[in-house]
Design a protein around this nucleic acid. Sequence first.
DNA 1: TCTCGAAGTCAACGGTTGTTGGCCTACGAT
DNA 2: ATCGTAGGCCAACAACCGTTGACTTCGAGA
Lengths: 190, 190
Amino acid sequence: MSDVTPRPRRSEATRAAILAAARERFAEDGYERATVRAIARQAHIDPSMVMRYFGSKEELFSQVIDVKLDIPDPDELAAEDVGTTIVGYFLDLWERDNVMVTLLRVGVTHPAGAARMREVFRTQVVPAVERFGYDPADAPRRAMLVSSQILGMALLRYVLRIGPAAEMSRADVIAWLGPTVERYITAPEP
Amino acid sequence: MSDVTPRPRRSEATRAAILAAARERFAEDGYERATVRAIARQAHIDPSMVMRYFGSKEELFSQVIDVKLDIPDPDELAAEDVGTTIVGYFLDLWERDNVMVTLLRVGVTHPAGAARMREVFRTQVVPAVERFGYDPADAPRRAMLVSSQILGMALLRYVLRIGPAAEMSRADVIAWLGPTVERYITAPEP
DNA sequence: TCTCGAAGTCAACGGTTGTTGGCCTACGAT
DNA sequence: ATCGTAGGCCAACAACCGTTGACTTCGAGA
């Protein structure tokens, strides 16, 4: 029976509630301490519902960290603003929701999280840097250098929340990191 | 075997064995997955011995991450080599043993680890940057900028072990990151 | 109105965790 | 040779974990 009119599917509401609760718990506590029971309690449902909707904790997690970076293309920005634009874009990405925090927090301790981080780097960051075309053959190394600066700042600012990192204004972060990122992308071999 | 020492104190051996095993398990698996049983198994002793010697898992961990950075003073290095010297020093620090890997891996997911990271930053990194004296009042911000670049590289290279980061030669890392760190320490406000 | 399947609840399973206390054993001092 | 004691092992505890299956509730189509 292929009925075009969708069933009431009132389950969609609770499914979304579970996902939202899982996102917050994974982001805040990491994989191990974000228990199925804690996620269920926050979503106001029974722990068994989590299994019913997502099969297992591992599968639920893999849906939580499904991330699309959507790094802007070089032709969408002025050539002299490469660094500052990239830094500003990533600040937005980290502040929009807690997916990146989750990815970093879990990626450091859980094998599946680490694998996902490597995959994101290989399939999204490296190709984005390649598109800039300053030195395509060396894109992996330049992508890694950019990632190291961005991830390091995000670690201090959004995960560890160390004073000076959390309090620094957005404009100052961009002003300091922009030239660094620009050099990593555009400078010839040092 | 002629024991000249007054007390055999044969417990010192197993105490050291427990500490060594704990260092490796915490560094590799993080706080939650480094179970007391796994540590005991690797040290070839009974899990109850861990409690006898260290009281609790939490206390054992706090002894594992007792870290002294010993950042070199500015008068020990040429003024024009500030950046490259600092980067080289930290590469050694991260490769000497796994204490820094442990601190980062646990600091991201466990509250006690995060607190220790903040403490190390405040009591060791900031004063070290202050000693350089380029802009003492702004030392916390400059220390944070340097830390972001060092920690980001260490994260990719020693924790996540992402290809291009792990394969890059020591000389290349220093050549790329050195100027960045130098600018964060010595440059006037951007 | 009756029926039926989906949505949700409840209690329990087996396994693992940190932690504890009782027991055994070996050895230095007497 | 004996004794006291510290080092080490064993078994068990309560708590918590992810996961499962049976039971109840409820709304929509006949």
